[in-house]
Write a protein that binds this DNA or RNA. Structure first.
Lengths: 258, 258
DNA sequence: AAACCTAGTTCCAAAAAATGAAACTCGAAA
DNA sequence: TTTCGAGTTTCATTTTTTGGAACTAGGTTT
C-alpha cells in the first residue's frame, strides 16, 4: 500500500539524520538488512538527485544540500517565522531569556528558530532539532488543541527524560486540558534537567494551531514572580503573532454570545 | 538504472519548491503526466513520511517539516556555518555591507546564511535560495576550483539575467582562471541588476573548496576604493575561516619550494 | 431535490521495476 | 604478489508499481 522505495528513502535519510559521521554503502546495507548491491544503486540515485552528497575523501554519505533548500521553503510557506521573528525579539528583550519558535509534527516538536537570551548561561537549542511534544511547554500547548495527538503520544509511551517528566497518561491529559483553558503550558524541567519554559500556541486565520512560542530558562533563574511574568509575556506575544496571521480573537477569556 | 520512485519524489518536491501555492492531486497528475490514482497513493506515502503536509483546508500539499530537520542537519554536518558566522559578523561590521555564506551544488549556489548590512538599502537574499553559479561572485570563486563544473555550466547555456551577465563561455573560463589566481571573484551586477559582490572560496582541512564567503552591495554604493576594500576584507575573512577549518596555508601568493 | 460537477481514493489484472547472488573492479594492506 | 575490504555491475527472478475504471464525497447548478 505504501510505496516502498519511498519508505526506504526515509529510512536512509533517518539513518543519516541520527548518524554523527558519514555512512558508507556496507554500513547502510547492514543497518537496513539489505544486500549492498541494492543499497549502492539506491545511493547513486539519491546522490544524483541532491538528497545526499558523498564525502570526497572516502565515498561515504552525508545529507545533501537540496534538503536544505526544500526545508527552508517548507517553513517559508508556513509564513509563521516571518510573522513571529520581530515579536520574538521584543519578547526576548522584555524577559531577557531565550525565545523559541516551534511547530508540532506528529508527536514531536521541531524548533524553527531561536532568539537567544543575552545572558551568559543559556540552554542552547538546535534549530531544526526535535523534542517529544509531551515533555516541553510548546509541545503541551499545541497538544492541548489536538486531543487525537495526545492519545497517539500516550500510545507511544511516556518515557521519562528527567525525574520530572510526565509519565502518567492521565496527568498529561489533565495538563493539556488546563493548558487549553489557560492558553499556555509550562515545562518545569521535564525534558532536560534544569531547563524550564513557558509555551503558548499560535493560530492562523482559520483558527488552527500552526505553531507555538516558548521560552527556555535555566531553573536557577526561575521563581514565582518570573513564572508569572513569563506566562503573561509569552501569552501576549503568541496572541500578537496570531493576530498578525489574521487569527480570530481568542475565545479563552471572553464568553461569546451563543 | 535510477530508481524511478525516487526520481518521481524529486520531481514532486521540485514542483512544491517552485510553487507559490499548495498543489493538489489533480494538479500534480497534470504536471507529472500521470494518472491521479498513482499520484494519490504516492502523496499518501510522502505525507506519512513527513515529506509533505496537507493544507487542512483543502487537502492540497506543502513541503513537510521533516525536510527542514534534514536540511538543518545537512548544513550542520558541513561544519561551515559554525566556523563562519562569527567571522562573517566581523566582516559585516568592517565593511558595513551584507555578507553571505554559500555552497556550490551542481551548477548553482545555495545560500546557507546571511549577515545583513545595517544600512537602509540592502539587496535581500533568501536563506535556502539559489543562484546560477556563473552569475555571482561566490559561484565564480568556487567554479574556479572545479573546472569540470565550469564546462557543465557552459553546456547548460549561459542565460543572460542582466545586460552584464557573462554569456560567452570563454569569458567565463577566463574569469574563473583569474579568480583562481587571485583568490576572489567579482559580480558587477550579473545576476540581479544593480547588485554587486565580491566572493572568495573557503577550504577545508583536505584543501577542498567547501563553500564561499561573499558580499552583496547595491551598485550605487560601489566605487574603486570600496571594491579594493571589499576584496581585501572578503579574502582575509575567507582565509581566516579556512584556517579555522584546518585548511593548509593558501598556495596563491607564495611560491612553495618544488 | 435531482442531476452534475470536481477532487480524491480504492481495486485489481497487466506491465514494469527492483531485487540480490555472484562476478567484477579498484585500492590499500600484508 | 596476494589478500582483503569496499563498492559497483550483471541478469534472471521476484516483487512492486501502474493505471483504467469504478467509487466516494462535497459542492454547485438546474
Amino acid at each position: 500500500m505504501m510505496n516502498q522505495s519511498l519508505q526506504k528513502t526515509a529510512r536512509i535519510l533517518g539513518i543519516l539524520m541520527e548518524s554523527k559521521a558519514p555512512v558508507g554503502v556496507n554500513e547502510f546495507a547492514r543497518l537496513l538488512g539489505m544486500p549492498k548491491s541494492t543499497v549502492s544503486r539506491f545511493m547513486a540515485t539519491m546522490e544524483s538527485l541532491g538528497m545526499v552528497r558523498r564525502d570526497p575523501e572516502n565515498g561515504r554519505f552525508f545529507l545533501g544540500f537540496r534538503l536544505f533548500e526544500l526545508g527552508c521553503k517548507a517553513i517559508e510557506d508556513l509564513g509563521l517565522r516571518k510573522a513571529a521573528l520581530p515579536l520574538m525579539e521584543s519578547l526576548r528583550d522584555r524577559i531577557n531569556e531565550s525565545v523559541l519558535l516551534t511547530v508540532l509534527e506528529d508527536t514531536h516538536i521541531t524548533y524553527l528558530d531561536t532568539i537567544e537570551s543575552r545572558q551568559a548561561i543559556v540552554a542552547r537549542t538546535q534549530i531544526g532539532g526535535r523534542a517529544p511534544a509531551y515533555c516541553v511547554s510548546s509541545g503541551k500547548a499545541m497538544l492541548a488543541h489536538h486531543p487525537d495527538r495526545i492519545e497517539k503520544v500516550v500510545a507511544q509511551g511516556l518515557r521519562p527524560y528527567t525525574p520530572l517528566t510526565i509519565t502518567e497518561p492521565d496527568r498529561l491529559r489533565r495538563e493539556c486540558e488546563k493548558a487549553r483553558e489557560q492558553g499556555y503550558a509550562l515545562n518545569r524541567g521535564e525534558f532536560r534537567e534544569g531547563v524550564t519554559g513557558v509555551g503558548a500556541p499560535v493560530f492562523n486565520a482559520s483558527g488552527a494551531v500552526i505553531g507555538a512560542i516558548s521560552t527556555s530558562t535555566p531553573a536557577a533563574r526561575m521563581n514565582k514572580l518570573r513564572w508569572q511574568e513569563h506566562i503573561e509575556a509569552v501569552t501576549q506575544t503568541a496572541q500578537a503573532i496570531s493576530r498578525r496571521l489574521g487569527a480570530p480573537a481568542p475565545a479563552g477569556a471572553h464568553h461569546l454570545p451563543g
